[in-house]
């Protein structure tokens, strides 16, 4: 791979002074907002429409989900540390924090797998009732986003061992970070709208 092409690449920076990829990522996140917005509104519109049990109050375990949410939020903090490390050129620190983000993300996914399994054993399936349909599709879609993020971060982690992640190319990490923070923020909204709402209204 020619470093000349990468470092001196005329196709990277734009007239606003921002790199192209950052603008693309922000526009994509705007699109993703509408994506999750549609799913969350579907969930809220159908809240209380289920004709069969189990209902949220039958099966939700708020302490458990709060724990996994806390782990996911912590991962955002590690993401900030990872970006800051690579911007200073501290490669080993970057690897450590990135691995941490991916690990915390995986813990969140593990909790989700446990929760889904538990719910299915309690009789809540995709087709059991509207709550099942809307809940699994919404949180499952979010889980897919987290899984993609974990794959992305692990790619960066391995890529760093063949010289693919450097101080000069910290933008790669920044873009992945934007995505990761967004997925976290969406979880705050989902956690509020799906889990906490049951205790308020």
């Amino acid at each position: 791979m020619s470093s000349e092409v990468l470092l001196d690449n005329p196709h990277e920076m734009g007239c606003t002074g921002l790199p192209h990829r950052k603008i693309l990522m922000w526009a994509f996140l705007a699109s993703d907002c509408m994506f999750f917005g549609s799913l969350i509104s579907t969930y809220l519109v159908y809240r209380g429409h289920s004709t069969d049990h189990p209902l949220p109050e039958d099966i939700f375990d708020i302490p458990l989900t709060s724990t996994s949410s806390f782990v996911l939020l912590l991962s955002s903090w590690l993401m900030v540390l990872a970006l800051s490390a690579i911007q200073k050129g501290k490669l080993w620190e970057f690897r450590l924090w990135t691995l941490g983000v991916a690990f915390f993300g995986s813990i969140f996914l593990g909790f989700q797998v446990y929760e889904f399994t538990h719910f299915v054993h309690s009789g809540l399936t995709l087709k059991q009732n509207l709550f099942g349909s809307t809940f699994f599709v919404l949180t499952g879609t979010h889980g897919c986003h987290v899984a993609i993020g974990v794959l992305w971060l692990m790619s960066l982690f391995f890529y760093s061992f063949i010289g693919g992640v450097t101080k000069e190319r910290s933008l790669d990490v920044e873009i992945a970070g934007l995505y990761w923070h967004f997925v976290d923020i969406v979880w705050i909204v989902i956690f509020t709208a799906v889990y906490l709402l049951e205790y308020i209204i």
Partner: peptide
């Protein structure tokens, strides 16, 4: 979007 905003 990126092209129009960033490649003028």
């Amino acid at each position: 979007i990126t092209t129009i905003i960033n490649m003028r």
